[in-house]
């Protein structure tokens, strides 16, 4: 029991970091679901793309010898902006190529196309990196600032990179909240989510709003990707699958289509996973341990869908035809 209390602050911190990452990715799922009622299965690859853009920019700076000279804050800003921009554009391109031609067809048709896009992008990234760097397992170059730690207490050591993740995520979540709820464009997005036909009668360019939604969701995913890379250092084209599926779980947990719900769901799932990873083995005397933490998200997902399909904050999902 002492051990359980001893590690509690650290577990909470890990859970928060994971939770913010899931929340950022979940936004992409939930925003797209909000406007199109469609699960963008390839969003996990948009996330990985962000991580790869980040590592490429950092490696480029390193090779050019700028990494040691430039101010680390500037470097981070550059990496984050590049990751967000390229992921956002990729999400828009994906919508144009693989989803728009299918709008209006049955829901499953678009989902199958999205799964195809996800698989295609995974190997596309692998092919590109194989040809370009001759390997597709890439390591983030180290930034000295990020490797420092702040020992807050005897049992809580806060790495700077965790702080970076939390601060950046908070800032962008607040920004997104402002964008969606306080600007005209945000109002257009909400209008399309409520009723695309009426929105188009009101003079809202629905296609452009949908593309914009993909851009914003993709950019959030890209940001999560860069943060993921900076925090865990190692990326490969397939590392998006597990975070992607968990973020989707988070979106459903919070109530899909609901932006605050995605943030809440992400936090809850991140904390749950961190607790499961650390305490499952203590509680069961080592019989079941951290190896089940990936399963955990699925069990949560199945449980919510059965018992409370509308999620924590969501409204009842409209009964549509699949």
């Amino acid at each position: 029991m002492e051990l359980a209390l001893e590690i509690l602050p650290q577990v909470l911190l890990d859970g928060l970091v994971l939770g913010f990452m899931y929340a950022l990715i979940a936004l992409g799922y939930t925003m797209v679901y909000g406007v199109l009622e469609f699960i963008n299965f390839a969003h996990s690859e948009i996330f990985v793309l962000g991580a790869f853009v980040g590592v490429e920019v950092l490696l480029w700076l390193q090779d050019a010898g700028h990494l040691a000279v430039l101010h680390p804050g500037f470097v981070l800003l550059l990496v984050i902006v590049a990751g967000m921009a390229i992921s956002g554009l990729a999400a828009m391109a994906l919508e144009r190529v693989a989803y728009r031609p299918l709008r209006g067809s049955p829901r499953l048709v678009a989902l199958i196309s999205a799964i195809g896009a996800s698989f295609f992008l995974q190997d596309g990234l692998r092919l590109f990196e194989s040809l370009w760097r001759n390997t597709f397992y890439l390591n983030y170059p180290t930034l000295d600032v990020l490797d420092q730690t702040l020992p807050l207490a005897s049992n809580l050591v806060v790495p700077v990179k965790s702080l970076l993740v939390i601060a950046t995520a908070l800032l962008s979540l607040a920004g997104l909240h402002f964008f969606v709820n306080r600007t005209r464009v945000g109002a257009a997005i909400r209008a399309v989510a409520q009723d695309p036909e009426t929105a188009s009668l009101m003079g809202i360019p629905v296609n452009r709003v949908i593309a914009l939604t993909f851009f914003v969701g993709g950019a959030m995913g890209g940001l999560a990707g860069v943060l993921f890379g900076l925090h865990y250092s190692l990326v490969n084209p397939y590392s998006g699958f597990a975070p992607g599926i968990k973020a989707f779980t988070a979106a459903v947990l919070g109530g899909i289509g609901n932006i605050p719900g995605a943030m809440l769901g992400g936090m809850v799932l991140g904390l749950l996973e961190a607790f499961a990873g650390s305490y499952l083995s203590i509680l069961t005397d080592g019989a079941f341990g951290a190896e089940y933490k990936d399963v955990f998200a699925f069990v949560v997902l199945i449980a919510i869908l059965i018992f409370r399909p509308k999620g924590l904050l969501g409204e009842t999902v409209r009964e549509g035809r699949a």
């Binding site: 693989a98 031609p101 196309s113 799964i115 195809g116 698989f119 295609f120 190997d123 194989s130």
Partner: peptide, 24 residues
Amino acid sequence: LPVQFEPAKYERMIFGLILILMMI
């Protein structure tokens, strides 16, 4: 020619293309 460029390793790409192209 890069050693990594081996079509047999890119089944996922093939599956993905089949799914997208067939759907469209």
